[in-house]
Amino acid sequence: MRKLKAGASINEHGIVYTRTATDGRWSVNVMIAGQRVHKVVGFESQGYTRQQAEDYVATLKATKHERETGIVAPRNRKSFSLADAVDDYLQYLREHGGKDLDNKVRRFEQHVVPHLGKLKLHAITDDDWARYVVKRKGEGAKPATINRERSALLHLLNTARKRKLLRDVPALERQVEPPGKLVYLSPAQGQRLLKAAESDQSEHALPFVMIALYTGMRHESILALRVRDVDDERRILWVGDDKAGQREQPMPSILATYLRELVRGRAADAFLFASARAKSGRIYQASAIFARCVERAGLGTGITPHTLRHTAATNAAHAGLDSATIQGLGGWKTRAMADRYTHAANLSVAMDALGARLSGTVTPELHRGSGKRR
């Protein structure tokens, strides 16, 4: 290129460099879909290089591919990695009201991208996922955690297919989760937790425990509530950011009365769990506050904010509500997730009935044993 005289050119695979009297010009001269494309891309003095010419040809070929197959090809497939796709996907969610965005960002940034980010989006296979699972298990991740990361990755891939960025999506084998113990608080334990929250040094302790205990809302959804989301007259909380999407969350009168006083005189856009130090204007998590209340209430270990979600559902089941109603109250995606609460409540009722039936039929002599061998 440096040795070219003015007016001379070099042509390689349709990319043409021409030396002018004072500059260097990049252009393309290629056949695309049976049509000759001859176009000046730019000049050296403007900062153009061979890369811009190559990118332009790649764009022309991708457009041809889209017309023929309906599949949108990445404009620069060589550099369109999973990491690039994650950035594009998260931006797409922000622009289209995506759900559970904070958790998706965390799972991608902390785990998926560090392990799989360099792979090309269109070339990810089930074998790549299997290797990822082995690495995550080696890091101590449990099957449930890996399955949540799988859900985030599958949503990215299926969204890309819906947007015609991908033709096929791998299955990504789901990990078998061991059956978990259904942990919930008794009414007496719930009252102890409320008293502990009432005496906590944080102003957010009691509102968080009240909302979680009486509605079963998810941790993140509670913290995202604003004053305008509280409708104490209809006894409704408007949930705008939840795994189940936007919905109305019913609440009992005791919580509606409490929240009416809590939001009185506050601006409609104000967060219920405001924080002047946080960039978003609200606290990001209440786990430390909650753990302090649990300890003060003497509830032992293993009690988390999610325990109150189980507690609300269990109380609803014991009150006689059916699975469909409980599903709507808690925002579960499937009926099966609500069935376990009604199943447990039915078993409890059955055991009470069995105990009442058998009471008085076991004599003290038979219960103690006669001490004689027969």
Score class of each variant (00 low, 15 high):
R131K: 15
V113D: 11
G34T: 04
H219S: 13
E173M: 11
R2Q: 11
V169K: 04
Y89C: 01
Y284F: 14
G180T: 12
R235Q: 15
K3H: 09
L272T: 00
E66I: 06
E68S: 14
Y48S: 00
A319L: 04
R25Y: 02
I32Q: 02
K333Y: 05
S359N: 15
F273V: 04
R357H: 15
R218D: 06
F43E: 01
E220Y: 08
Y284L: 13
A21K: 05
I124K: 02
L237A: 05
A313M: 04
R335A: 13
L185N: 00
T363Y: 14
N158R: 15
R75A: 13
V133Q: 14
D100W: 10
D352K: 14
I71W: 05
R50L: 07
D200G: 06
L354Q: 15
A141Y: 11
L121H: 01
Q110I: 12
E95A: 07
F273A: 03
T20E: 05
L299T: 05
R264S: 11
V40Y: 08
I124C: 04
R2V: 09
L366H: 12
L116R: 09
P250A: 02
V41N: 02
Q191M: 11
W238Q: 12
V113E: 10
Y48C: 09
A53F: 07
W129Y: 11
V113L: 03
E66A: 12
G320A: 10
I32Y: 01
S253A: 07
K61Y: 11
Y184I: 10
G42S: 08
D352Y: 12
F273K: 01
V176T: 14
A171M: 15
L93T: 03
L262E: 07
E44Q: 13
K99M: 11
K104R: 09
T363R: 15
K181Q: 06
E198A: 15
V37P: 03
A83C: 08
R150T: 07
A152V: 09
I32K: 00
A144G: 01
L166S: 05
I124W: 01
I303F: 07
T159V: 13
E177R: 05
K164E: 15
S81L: 06
V239I: 05
Y214L: 11
D242P: 02
D242R: 03
S280V: 14
V294A: 03
G42W: 10
E220A: 14
M337L: 10
K135R: 14
V113G: 04
H65A: 13
A197P: 08
V294I: 10
P179K: 14
V41D: 02
G300P: 01
R296D: 10
W26P: 00
R266H: 09
E149T: 00
A319T: 06
E54Y: 02
D88A: 05
S323E: 08
R296W: 07
A350V: 08
L272S: 06
D242L: 02
A123S: 12
T49Q: 03
L366M: 12
D241L: 11
P170I: 05
G190Q: 08
N147E: 14
R192F: 07
I211Y: 03
A313Q: 03
Y258I: 00
R368W: 02
T145Q: 03
H318F: 14
L4S: 06
